[in-house]
């Protein structure tokens, strides 16, 4: 039987990996994937609390459905903007996005 702490730790680890990837990776596609990882960590958290919380309720699962839908929409827009960016600049490297500085 897994305990609530183990699920929350898994969520926290995933969230930190996602945050680290989003802030350090050079390819924008990997950055977007890392953001998805962060959102999935949130989903694990919500589902844990829906099952084991102080006052478990169905709301957490409903929240997860909304999160997944919106994450998909966000990623779709992200890829569309990335395509537009690639057509203009011919690169998807984070370090090349330097047209505007300070």
């Amino acid at each position: 039987m897994l305990s609530v702490e183990q699920f929350l730790t898994l969520g926290a680890i995933l969230f930190c990996i996602g945050l680290f990837g989003a802030l350090t990776k050079r390819n924008i596609i990997i950055v977007l994937v890392s953001i998805e990882l962060m959102l999935n960590a949130v989903n694990i958290n919500l589902l844990t609390f829906a099952r084991f919380g102080l006052m478990p309720s169905i709301n957490g699962q409903i929240f997860t459905l909304f999160t997944m839908t919106i994450a998909a929409a966000e990623l779709a827009v992200g890829l569309a903007v990335l395509i537009s960016l690639y057509r203009n600049r011919n690169t998807s490297d984070v370090r090349d996005q330097d047209l505007m500085k300070w």
Binding site: F15, G18, V42, N45, T48, F63, L85
Partner: peptide
């Protein structure tokens, strides 16, 4: 496009952060 991409990446990270906070508020 560059401005949009920067806004999107940072905005999405921010949403994920806020959501993570909301999940704890919901948990308690």
């Amino acid at each position: 496009a560059e401005g949009g991409m920067k806004y999107l990446v940072i905005g999405s990270i921010a949403s994920a952060m806020a959501l993570y906070g909301m999940s704890f508020l919901y948990g308690v």
